[in-house]
Nucleic acid binder design. Structure first.
Length: 564
RNA sequence: CGGGACGUGGCGCAGCCUGGUAGCGCACGCGCUUUGGGAGCGCGGGGUCGUCAGUUCGAAUCUGACCGUCCCGACCA
C-alpha cells in the first residue's frame, strides 16, 4: 500500500487539551479524532489497531468455546426495571416517537438473562458461553484522558451460563486463562487483582490492570507477588504501636484541639494511639447519622464505607454533629453517645485491641484509654484505606501501591440476573433450578490506549507486532528506490505482511519522523546505497541500530524479523 | 455534582489589561531548487474571533447569559 493513498493526518504539536501520553500520541499520530466529550472516531490507522486487538480477543474467546453473537444497543427500559438497574445514573435514557421508554445498553447482563430464559430449557443445554463486540453507552460524570474514559465504547462482553456454582467457577477460571493469554499476546504489562463487584453485584470479581501513571485506579501489590488487589477492597496488616498497660478511661482537657495531628502533638503520643471519628449521613430516606471509627493515622476508604453502610453517604454537617453528640466536631468519640442516637456504629477491626485516645463528646476534652468491648462496641468492618509499606495479611510481604488502567474484568454473578428474569432450567430430577451467570468484559479501545501508555518513547508509539496497524514501513528515497520498494511490498504482502511504502513527496526527515510517530514495528529505508552497494537498511522501532541487508536477502530478512 | 481553566483559519499560539478595518509559526495550493532525520526562495488561498444579548460612533477586546472543551475531587471496559 502506498502512503500517498492513505489518510495519515499526523500532527507536529501535541493537542492542547491532552494530558495523558496515549491521548497525545494517538491524536498526533492520526489514529483517533474527537467528536465530542468522551466521543471518539477511530480513523483508518486507529481502526486497524483496534481491529487487530479485537481479533486477538476473538481468537482466545473462540478457543475456550465461547460463541460470538450480537445483541442490540437499544433496549426497552422495562428490561432494566426487572433488575432494578434502570436507576443507575450512568444509564442513558430516551423515548421513541410513541413515547415508549428506551435505554442505551451500558452492559448486557439483562439481555443475556432474557435469552437464557427464552432458550435454555434443560441441564443438557448447559454450560453455555456467549460473547459479542458491542457498543456500550454510559453517561459518565467525567469523560477523561482521551480513550481512557469515554461515554461510548466498544466492549467485548462475554457471559457464561452454568447449572451451579461449581460450573460457574469453572467458566470463570476458563475466562481468567483466556484473559491472561489475551493480554500476553497484546504485549501489555498487567496485574490480575481482586476487585469490588460494583454495580454488577455478585460474589467474586477480578480486574486486569495495566500499570500506568495515567491510570485512575490504585492497586495494592505485595513485593513477593502473592497478593494483589484494588485498594477498594485491599486489606493489610497495620503496624502496631506499643499500647502499654490497660488503664481505666479518664478525661483530659484538650483546649482547642480538633485534629489528630494536634492531639498527638499536644499529649506527646504516637498518632497510632489515637482514634478518629468520621460522621456521615446515608443518602437515603431512612435518615440518621453513622459514626465510623478508624485509627488516628488511618484514612477511611469511601467505597469500603459505602459498602459497609449499604449505599452512598455524605459528610455530616457541624449542626448535625452537635445535635447528635452534643459536642463540636473534633471532639467526637464512641463513648457516652446517647442511646439510640446513632443509626450505625462502624469500627475498623484495627481498633479491636488496645487502648486509645479518643473524642470525649465534650468540647475541648478527650478520653484516655478507650478500649473496644470494655468502653464501647460497634460493628467491626474493615473500612480503612491500605497504605504503602503495610504488610500483606498472608505472607507479611510489604505492599506497594501503583496506578493502573482497568482494561478488563471478570465477575461471578451468581443467580441474581437469572432470578430477576426467570432464567431457569430443569435438572435430572425435573426440578426447576436457577442458571448461574458470570460476565467478563474487556475494553478494546481502552486496551489500545493502555498499550500506547506503556509502549512509546519521545518520538512516538512503539506497537507490539500483534496490534500494529502495519507490519513494515518502507521509506524509499529516490526513483529507483521507489521501484524496489514496490517490489518488496508485493513480496511481503503476498507472504501476509501489511506494508506501507511511504511514497509521499516529503523530505526524508519528515517521513522518518512520521514513521516513528506512527510506531510501525519494522522500518525499511531504501536510499542511495541500493545502487551503490546493493543494500537496504532495516530498523526495528524502539530497538537496536539499523542493519544493512543485501537486496536479495531483504524479503527473507524482514519475514524473519516480523516472525520473531 | 463541587472547584479551576480555556474557546481567535486544519494544528499550535499572540492580540484582549489600555475598544479604532485580525496577526505569527506549522500545515495547505502553484512555480523553481532540494532529497538518509521535521529543506530553501517566491507567489497565493483560507478566519461570522464559540453563540446570543447589552454598553459604545465603533467590540476579538468591556458586561451578562448560554453553549462547548479540558483539568482536579465522588463512579467504571
Amino acid at each position: 500500500m502506498r502512503a500517498s493513498r492513505l489518510l495519515l493526518p499526523t500532527l507536529r504539536d501535541d493537542p492542547a487539551d491532552a494530558v495523558a501520553a496515549s491521548h497525545k500520541l494517538l491524536v498526533r499520530a492520526g489514529y483517533v479524532r474527537q467528536v465530542g466529550s468522551g466521543l471518539w472516531s477511530f480513523m483508518p490507522l486507529g481502526f486497524r489497531t483496534l481491529t487487530r486487538t479485537m481479533q486477538v480477543i476473538r481468537e482466545e474467546m473462540d478457543a475456550i468455546g465461547c460463541q460470538e453473537l450480537l445483541m442490540p444497543i437499544m433496549h426497552p427500559e422495562e428490561l432494566w426495571r426487572q433488575t432494578g438497574r434502570n436507576m443507575i445514573p450512568e444509564l442513558f435514557k430516551l423515548q421513541d416517537r410513541k413515547g415508549s421508554e428506551l435505554v442505551l445498553a451500558m452492559t448486557h447482563e439483562e439481555t443475556v438473562a432474557l435469552h437464557a430464559a427464552g432458550e435454555i430449557r434443560s441441564y443438557r443445554d448447559l454450560p453455555q458461553c456467549w460473547y459479542q463486540f458491542q457498543t456500550k453507552a454510559r453517561d459518565e460524570p467525567r469523560p477523561q484522558g482521551g480513550l481512557l474514559r469515554t461515554r461510548e465504547f466498544i466492549m467485548k462482553d462475554a457471559y457464561s451460563l452454568d447449572r451451579d456454582e461449581a460450573g460457574l467457577q469453572a467458566s470463570y477460571a476458563a475466562q481468567a486463562g483466556a484473559y491472561r493469554r489475551i493480554f500476553d499476546r497484546l504485549g501489555l504489562q498487567y496485574y490480575e487483582v481482586d476487585s469490588d463487584v460494583g454495580m454488577m453485584g455478585g460474589s467474586a470479581a477480578m480486574e486486569y490492570m495495566a500499570p500506568s501513571p495515567a491510570g485512575e485506579d490504585r492497586i495494592a501489590l505485595s513485593e513477593d507477588g502473592s497478593y494483589s488487589a484494588n485498594v477498594e477492597l485491599a486489606v493489610s496488616r497495620a503496624t502496631l504501636p506499643d499500647f502499654g498497660p490497660s488503664e481505666p478511661t479518664h478525661e483530659i482537657e484538650t483546649p482547642g484541639i480538633t485534629t489528630i495531628d494536634q492531639l498527638a502533638e499536644f499529649v506527646g503520643r504516637d498518632p497510632r494511639l489515637t482514634m478518629k471519628a468520621v460522621i456521615v449521613v446515608p443518602e437515603d430516606e431512612q435518615g440518621g447519622v453513622v459514626l465510623a471509627l478508624v485509627r488516628g493515622d488511618h484514612r477511611v476508604h469511601d467505597l469500603k464505607l459505602t459498602r459497609a453502610i449499604g449505599g452512598p453517604f455524605r459528610p455530616a454537617t457541624p449542626e448535625e454533629i452537635r445535635n447528635v453528640f452534643g459536642a463540636e466536631p473534633g471532639s467526637i468519640g464512641a463513648v457516652g453517645v446517647r442511646e439510640g442516637a446513632l443509626r450505625d456504629l462502624i469500627v475498623d477491626p484495627v481498633l479491636e485491641h488496645g487502648g486509645y485516645l479518643a473524642g470525649a463528646n465534650r468540647t475541648g476534652w478527650h478520653l484516655h484509654g478507650v478500649e473496644y468491648g470494655r468502653d464501647f462496641t460497634g460493628r467491626l468492618v474493615d473500612i480503612r484505606h491500605v497504605e504503602a509499606g503495610e504488610l500483606s495479611v498472608e505472607t507479611g510481604s510489604p505492599l506497594r501501591i501503583e496506578s493502573a488502567i482497568e482494561v478488563g474484568n471478570i465477575f461471578q454473578l451468581g443467580t441474581r440476573y437469572a432470578d430477576a428474569l426467570g432464567a431457569t432450567y430443569l435438572d435430572e430430577n425435573s426440578v426447576e433450578q436457577s442458571i448461574w451467570m458470570g460476565s467478563y468484559g474487556i475494553g478494546p479501545a481502552r486496551t489500545v490506549a493502555a498499550i500506547a501508555e506503556q509502549c512509546h518513547d519521545e518520538k512516538g508509539l512503539i506497537w507490539p507486532a500483534s496490534v500494529a496497524p502495519y507490519d513494515v514501513w518502507i521509506t524509499p528515497i529516490g526513483e529507483a528506490a521507489l521501484a524496489f520498494a514496490d517490489t518488496l511490498d508485493r513480496e511481503l504482502s503476498s507472504a501476509g505482511l501489511a506494508v506501507v511504502v511511504d511514497d509521499r513527496d516529503l523530505s526524508p526527515g519528515v517521513r522518518f519522523a512520521d514513521a516513528d510517530l506512527i510506531g510501525v514495528p519494522l522500518r525499511v529505508t531504501i536510499g542511495k546505497r541500493l545502487e551503490k552497494d546493493g543494500v537496504i537498511s532495516i530498523k526495528r522501532r524502539g530497538g537496536a541500530d539499523e542493519v544493512d541487508v543485501p537486496v536479495e536477502d531483504a524479503a527473507e530478512a524482514l519475514l524473519a524479523f516480523s516472525g520473531s
